[in-house]
Design a protein around this nucleic acid. Sequence first.
DNA 1: CGCACAATTGAGAGTTATCAATTGCGGTGG
DNA 2: CCACCGCAATTGATAACTCTCAATTGTGCG
Lengths: 349, 349
Amino acid sequence: MTRILLIEDNDELRENTSEILQMANYSVIAAENGKEGVRLAMEQKPDLIICDIMMPVLDGYGVLHLINKNPGLASVPFIFLTAKSERSDLRKGMEMGADDYIPKPFSDIELLNAVESRLRKTSLIRKNYEYTEEGLNAFLKDAKSSLEDLADNSELQSYKKKQVVYREGSYPHELFFLKKGKVKIYKSNEFGKELITDLLTDGNFFGYTALFDDAKYAETAETLEESDICCISREDFDRLISNNKEVSQTFIRLLAKNVSEKEQQLLDLAYNSLRKRVADALLMLQEKYKKDNDKTVIQISREDLANMAGIATESLIRTLSDFKSEKMIEVNGGKITIANEKKLSSLVN
Amino acid sequence: MTRILLIEDNDELRENTSEILQMANYSVIAAENGKEGVRLAMEQKPDLIICDIMMPVLDGYGVLHLINKNPGLASVPFIFLTAKSERSDLRKGMEMGADDYIPKPFSDIELLNAVESRLRKTSLIRKNYEYTEEGLNAFLKDAKSSLEDLADNSELQSYKKKQVVYREGSYPHELFFLKKGKVKIYKSNEFGKELITDLLTDGNFFGYTALFDDAKYAETAETLEESDICCISREDFDRLISNNKEVSQTFIRLLAKNVSEKEQQLLDLAYNSLRKRVADALLMLQEKYKKDNDKTVIQISREDLANMAGIATESLIRTLSDFKSEKMIEVNGGKITIANEKKLSSLVN
DNA sequence: CGCACAATTGAGAGTTATCAATTGCGGTGG
DNA sequence: CCACCGCAATTGATAACTCTCAATTGTGCG
């Protein structure tokens, strides 16, 4: 429930106002002077603060000043509620960083509307995008939709097979969106051995880690087949991230998930046998390439598949033929189909 | 430079106001009607919008409505500037989500103060915390400092050696702060083999990935020695994250850095020889345990060290004695000192 | 002093990479 | 239409690396 801190020294007004707010289904924390109000704000972390200006002990301006000094509270919406209706008083309140200023006497509806609009403004009521990459994509699409009229076609680039989108060590200037095609993300070590850290299909964003990290790319992105890639300028992206709470929180979740996944991969790479790693890679690919239609066909070069599992190409090939003779997969002309998923995944766990 | 979009149909007022803002060193984008204003807002993404209400083509309310519908612009501060000074007009503007409402005629200083206070409010002027874990810690300390009077000692817990702080698979309820001591973060596979993914010393936060990810812990945290650990409740943390742009952005950067690091670890684990992995682990420990004083002593059990490198304990021990005979490290009674850092790091690269 | 546990050493087995050779396949030019 | 080229895929043999198991030594603590 949304919690509102009400700071007002007049007993009658405080109780009346409190009642109104409660009827509107807010949880009210009441304080009868500024000092008490600040204490409660810090202790309770309300979602919104309504505060009188003229009070004994500590006046409203003092309360606002103290609240603003606290990083955890500075962005809580703050509404002044006061008999001082002079223009200069109003300006002073707003200039100090209040979000609204309601002169007494006020009507119930004025108060409730003010509260509601401030809560809406700080996105306490927000759309619920899912915290997955898909959800994020949906969101960004949403966010971008209004911009799409402006986005001229020069932003859409066509890449041929095996073209590098960005290279390890270069500086990021944009966020990429893979409209169509396949892209591998990989790092390579001093001997040129590659490890594929991610494999992207239609509708995915990539290249954001370096943007956030404010660093050079730590990996290389290369197309596996003909692809159409959209570029979103760094500026647009930064603005979206910094102005939009939902986007930044979604990205936090996305990144956190990413960290968890990478940790799991670390564990697998460290201790799993080659067989398990191959099985893992195959299952992951199956997951990525899955279509609505019946059989998922995995099409990827032996070398890339080996680089996903972090093993030598020859070892991969031998393992694949083992799997084939064990009837877990089928191979025809480079294309792999998983024939017995159950058996294959039993290897992994 | 901060860019302000000024939407005003009166030529004279628009030019005057524009001049004032430019003198205050803002970059001004001027629009002479609402429609044009909305177009420019979407195209230019200003940092703040000042808008008249009564205009031909599209009035100020319409502009605000359209702006609010665009996720990338909804949080841009919006100031109404209008001759309509009736209380009801003011309320309507604020209720629609404007951030300030300045009745004409207004003084230069009123305008500039309003602009500045709104920009301050949206943290466009912000403290520069560094984007490192240390910077984050400094920030959170700052954020918490005002709370510390309230934090009673029950939040501080003492752990003995080898105690589990949280276990893989359990649900997170708080963020942990390691005040004193050492903690290892590890995952283990089906055969009970551990891989240490992180090692923490004094002054570090941990356990946040699961909080963000909104999932069960994917790893276990265990003390390596007697430790004092502070617990910050999930609620406090969530509030701080969701209300504070700087915190959330700092966390984004932290997590992005985390992802990059893990990817590097993946590459190392996949293709590096055992010798390299051990050298890597030693150098990392040296980095972590570095004190102001001369020699950094690494104190960790052979088993844990092996689990950091992802190798068998016996293999680790053999490699350590190799390193010792090659004069790269010194060992006395379990304690390891790096004797020739240059030679050791030459192994890694 | 002895117990429990950590560290070390040795031998051998198992796994995986490497190198070299061979086969298969798609496209291309004659 | 076919031979041929270049590259990917495959196979084989071997070497290198790392783990495992078992035995032994060392060490801190009650």
